[in-house]
C-alpha cells in the first residue's frame, strides 16, 4: 500500500470503502502450504497456479446446507440428510445450519413473491417442534410461509402435526430428497448472492455460485458448478466439487487464499502482484491455471473472435 494511505490522509468523506488500493499481501497468506508452481506454457495470463499435491477431500459437501428450490407455484426447503452430528463428518450442527441459512437468505436476491408457500423436505432428519418453529421464524422474516413438512421420520411428522403443518410421511428408504446425484444429473439453479461473504461464512451449493460483492479472507465458497465473484475473491473457492474439472472460478480480483477445482488445489502466490485484472482459473494439463479474463474469453468462449480478427486488439 502507498504510504500516503495513512490515517492522516483520511477524512470521513474520503473513506469510501471501495478503494483501489491493493491489500496488504499478508492478508491473503495461504493457510495450506503447497509447492511453488511449475509455471505452465499455457496461453496468456499470470500463472500463479500449481500442480495439485495429493490432498484429502475437504470435509465440506455442497449438499450439507439448507437451500431453497423453486418448484413453480411453491418452494421446497431442502434439508441435508445423513449423519446429524459434525463429529460424524455429516450435516452441520443445528445452530450452524440455521446461521448459514440466514446468511444465505440475507445475501440473496429473493426470487419469490411475498407469501410464497414453502414445503420443507426434511428427509430423515429428526426435528422437534422448537426446531420447526425456528425454521418458520426465519422463513417468515423472508416473507415465506411454511405450510407442509415432508419427512421419513415419525417423530418429525408428529412434531409437525402438533405445530399445525400438513405432513407427508414418506417411507424411510424413499430417496426423493437428497441422495447424491447420479452422474449426469443436472446441477441446481445458480445461487446469486449480493453481499460481502465474510470470514467464517461458508456457502455451499450443488450448482453455480455467483457473488456480487467480495469474498473476504476466511470465507469459503464450494460449488458443484462454477464460481463467479464480481468483486474480490480473497477466501477459499472450490468449483466443480463433484469432480467436474471443466469448471471455472472467475473473479474481478483474484487474490484467493486457496483455489480448488474438482480434485486439484492451488494456493495464492507468496507475493501477489499489485495490479489486479479480472482473471479465470481453470484446469489445463492436470493443474489449475489462471489467465486474464479477456484473453481467456477470447480463447474459450467466443469461437468467432478466437479464430479470425480480434477487434479488441485494435484498441
Amino acid at each position: 500500500m502507498a504510504p500516503d494511505d495513512s490515517a492522516a490522509a483520511v477524512t470521513d468523506s474520503g473513506l469510501d470503502t471501495g478503494t483501489d488500493t491493493a491489500i496488504d499481501a499478508s492478508i491473503v497468506a495461504p493457510e495450506v502450504p503447497v509447492d511453488k508452481p511449475a509455471t505452465s506454457a499455457e496461453a496468456a495470463g499470470s500463472e500463479h497456479s500449481s500442480p495439485a499435491p495429493p490432498q484429502p477431500a475437504p470435509p465440506i459437501d455442497p449438499r450439507t446446507q439448507l437451500r431453497l428450490r423453486n418448484e413453480g407455484d411453491h418452494l421446497v426447503l431442502l434439508m441435508p440428510s445423513g449423519p446429524q452430528s459434525e463429529a460424524e463428518g455429516g450435516a452441520l450442527a443445528w445452530g450452524e445450519l440455521l446461521q448459514h441459512f440466514r446468511q444465505r437468505l440475507n445475501g440473496g436476491e429473493p426470487f419469490w413473491q411475498p407469501n410464497t408457500v414453502v414445503h420443507l423436505a426434511a428427509s430423515d432428519r429428526l426435528l422437534d417442534a422448537r426446531q420447526l418453529q425456528a425454521l418458520d421464524d426465519i422463513l417468515t422474516a423472508a416473507q415465506l410461509r411454511l405450510k407442509r413438512v415432508i419427512t421419513s421420520r415419525r417423530q418429525t411428522a408428529m412434531a409437525a402435526v402438533t405445530v399445525g403443518y400438513s405432513v407427508d410421511q414418506l417411507e424411510a428408504e424413499d430417496t426423493l430428497v437428497q441422495s447424491p446425484p447420479p452422474p449426469g444429473k443436472p446441477l441446481a439453479e445458480p445461487l446469486y448472492l449480493q453481499t460481502t461473504v465474510r470470514s467464517g461464512v461458508e456457502i455451499r451449493h450443488p450448482g453455480t455460485i455467483v457473488v456480487l460483492g467480495d469474498a473476504n479472507p476466511g470465507s469459503s465458497l464450494v460449488a458443484e458448478g462454477d464460481i463467479l465473484v464480481w468483486g474480490r475473491l480473497r477466501g477459499i473457492a472450490h468449483a466443480g466439487f463433484g469432480g467436474d474439472r471443466d469448471r471455472y472460478i472467475m473473479a474481478l480480483q483474484m487474490q484467493p487464499t486457496q483455489l480448488r477445482l474438482a480434485d486439484l488445489v492451488a494456493r495464492a502466490p507468496d507475493s501477489p502482484g499489485t495490479d489486479y485484472l479480472p482473471e479465470v482459473a481453470y484446469v489445463g494439463n492436470n493443474a489449475i491455471r489462471i489467465a486474464q479474463a479477456q484473453a481467456f474469453a477470447r480463447q474459450h468462449f467466443d469461437a468467432t473472435l478466437g479464430q479470425g480478427a480480434q477487434p479488441t486488439d485494435a484498441f
Binding site: M1, P3, D5, A8, T17, T19, T21, D24, I27, P217
Partner: peptide
C-alpha cells in the same frame, strides 16, 4: 499508531475498511 502506519508497518484505516466494508 500513526507513526507505524506512516512507516507502513501497520494496517491503515483504509486497509481495514477495505476488508470490512462497513461505515467508520
Amino acid at each position: 499508531k500513526p507513526k507505524m502506519v506512516q512507516e507502513d508497518q501497520m494496517m491503515s484505516v483504509r486497509d481495514v475498511l477495505d476488508i470490512l466494508a462497513v461505515p467508520l
